[in-house]
Design a protein around this nucleic acid. Sequence first.
DNA 1: AATTAGTACCTTGCAAAACAAAGTACATGA
DNA 2: TCATGTACTTTGTTTTGCAAGGTACTAATT
Lengths: 113, 113
Amino acid sequence: MEIINNVENVKSQMRKGVLEYCILSILAKKDSYAPALIAELKQAKMIVVEGTLYPLLIRQKNQGFLTYRWEESPQGPPRKYYTITEKGRAALQEMDQAWQDVVNSIQYIKNEL
Amino acid sequence: MEIINNVENVKSQMRKGVLEYCILSILAKKDSYAPALIAELKQAKMIVVEGTLYPLLIRQKNQGFLTYRWEESPQGPPRKYYTITEKGRAALQEMDQAWQDVVNSIQYIKNEL
DNA sequence: AATTAGTACCTTGCAAAACAAAGTACATGA
DNA sequence: TCATGTACTTTGTTTTGCAAGGTACTAATT
């Protein structure tokens, strides 16, 4: 069981690294709000929970990567819809490169080292 | 500069997630010791420093993924050579899958969401 | 009017881990 | 014996994911 536990941990670590990248990538396509983001990430098999996502969105907003607006919900309380900014798109481009770099590094280690 | 700083941070986060995986991958090919590992990771453009690597090796040893032996150096103090164990190889296989899962998730988010 | 269920947002406390920086120790040659 | 190079370790700080608990709004049910 220990191996599984550790691999779960590594998996969680790997998620950490790309979560910010995933959020910006999704919001680059269309505005969204927290529970919808969680559902979309789940669909991509990238598990996130509220306690992780909300602080992350707030951090990204504080960095100027996102803005938000309140929108009425057809059912329940209003939703906080996040929109990516120009600055956020610029950061996303950098992250695309960063992600590619990591993928290349792994490939190098696996095949060429 | 702020964007660059944040991207550096994200890059560092991404590294975090795969570092343990990289170490096991390298040691699966041949035994090594800390400064040599640092050099090899640097060659793969995956920057790590001593303060990160040494505790990581100790953790992996404590989990039973690695063992070590002391070996004389042609120059300087003896080296601690790490060897991957069977348990370590099993964990590495799991991590191969975990890494592939993350790659697939990103791909899904980018192309199919 | 009060209660319940569903939805949404936020915060607190804890644990893990990367990193910078400083420290210890051994070997070799000047 | 002192300086230099190599190697291993530890300490303190900071970041961040996550579990758990809390607040608040809406609509349907009693």
